[in-house]
């Protein structure tokens, strides 16, 4: 199969959906140029009416996504960095997430908020966050977080076709990663996790970029432990069943989460596993997350964001 980079897979998903449905349009600051290459070149094919360069106005960009989606369009709002969601929090978390609900289900808001997440680039606190928990504690939103080019394309196409607001987080550390991507039309259903590597001793749940390290750790430790790696692909809806099946087999669970530890996805998932599969666990669940600090600039970030050694240590600890 042909290979594409993650950023090209995103670009191709946008192009295919823009082609397929004239109600789809893209809006964001500089999307005609494309900060990460994810939207580059689309304007040549679809024109400035559908690939809309906007002023530096995240709040208005998100407002456009909310308003236009209520009138039958399928806007994709490119917010550039997920950290910038705080700037348009009202539009995303109170309006997009909640207006259908508040209006008794009379309306649909099919919009996508796409933004890059992730640290490891020494970009400091306002360009490095991975705010999964921010989204997850807003019922009404869905959250997709692809970890390879195949998923990047398939999940984005599903996001655009979904009749609900979807937050689509692509990881800046994965943009240049290459992988097989079919040329034909395909989508990946939300709420279907994938087992990236099969194993019998310990389950590692690792969304987005964390999957990369989970696989590396599994490889490093392969002579000692058989590690099963699960990528949830979407955190809402979450495929808890696949995780439970694995935990019942291995009896051990490590959760990786690049977001801040406190009140995060890892804490939430650990509790859900406790509620459903406590008796199947042979050891307490371990989590590896960003420590409870802001993400500092410069080299100091390594003391806050998850490190590969911590992943291996966590696996060893639950297996001890």
């Amino acid at each position: 199969m042909r290979e594409l980079m993650y950023l090209q897979a995103i670009n191709e998903a946008l192009a295919e959906e823009l082609e397929r449905d004239e109600k789809v349009f893209l809006i964001g600051e500089g999307v005609q140029t494309g900060t990460f290459g994810t939207t580059t070149g689309l304007v040549d094919r679809f024109g400035p009416e559908r690939i809309m360069d906007s002023p530096l106005s995240e709040t208005a960009i998100a407002g456009v996504a909310v308003g236009a989606s209520m009138l039958g369009y399928r806007p994709v709002a490119d917010l550039m960095f997920a950290d910038f969601m705080y700037v348009c929090a009202d539009e995303i978390f109170l309006k997009a997430a909640q207006w259908r609900f508040m209006h008794g289900g009379l309306q649909t808001l099919p919009c996508v908020f796409m933004a890059n997440i992730g640290a490891y680039r020494k970009l400091g606190n306002e360009h490095s966050q991975c705010p999964f928990s921010l989204v997850l504690r807003s019922p009404g939103l869905k959250l997709a977080a692809p970890s390879d080019p195949y998923d990047a394309k398939g999940l984005l196409k599903t996001a655009i076709r979904d009749n609900n607001p979807v937050v689509y987080f692509f990881h800046k550390g994965l943009l240049g990663m290459s992988g097989p991507v079919p040329e034909e039309d395909y989508t990946i259903p939300f709420g279907q996790a994938v087992v990236r590597r099969e194993g019998d001793d310990v389950t590692v749940v690792a969304p987005s970029f964390m999957g990369f390290w989970a696989i590396a750790a599994a490889e490093e430790l392969k002579d000692r432990f058989s590690v099963e790696v699960i990528d949830p692909r979407t955190l809402e809806p979450l495929d808890l069943d696949t995780i439970l099946v694995s935990v019942r087999k291995t009896g051990h669970l490590v959760i990786l989460d690049e977001d801040t530890e406190r009140c995060g996805f890892a804490a939430e998932l650990a509790m859900q596993v406790m509620e459903k599969a406590f008796d199947d666990l042979d050891a307490p669940i371990k989590r590896v997350c960003a420590a409870n600090y802001p993400i500092p600039g410069g080299v100091m970030e390594k003391y806050v964001i998850p490190q590969p050694e911590q992943v291996m240590a966590a696996i060893e600890e639950v297996m001890a």
């Binding site: 998100a62 407002g63 909310v66 209520m70 109170l94 309006k95």
Partner: peptide, 19 residues
């Protein structure tokens, strides 16, 4: 629709107007 956060009328109205 009408929100509870005063001033949130503006961005959403722009979205409706663009549509």
């Amino acid at each position: 629709g009408a929100g509870g956060t005063i001033g949130s009328c503006f961005p959403v109205s722009v979205g409706w107007a663009l549509a």
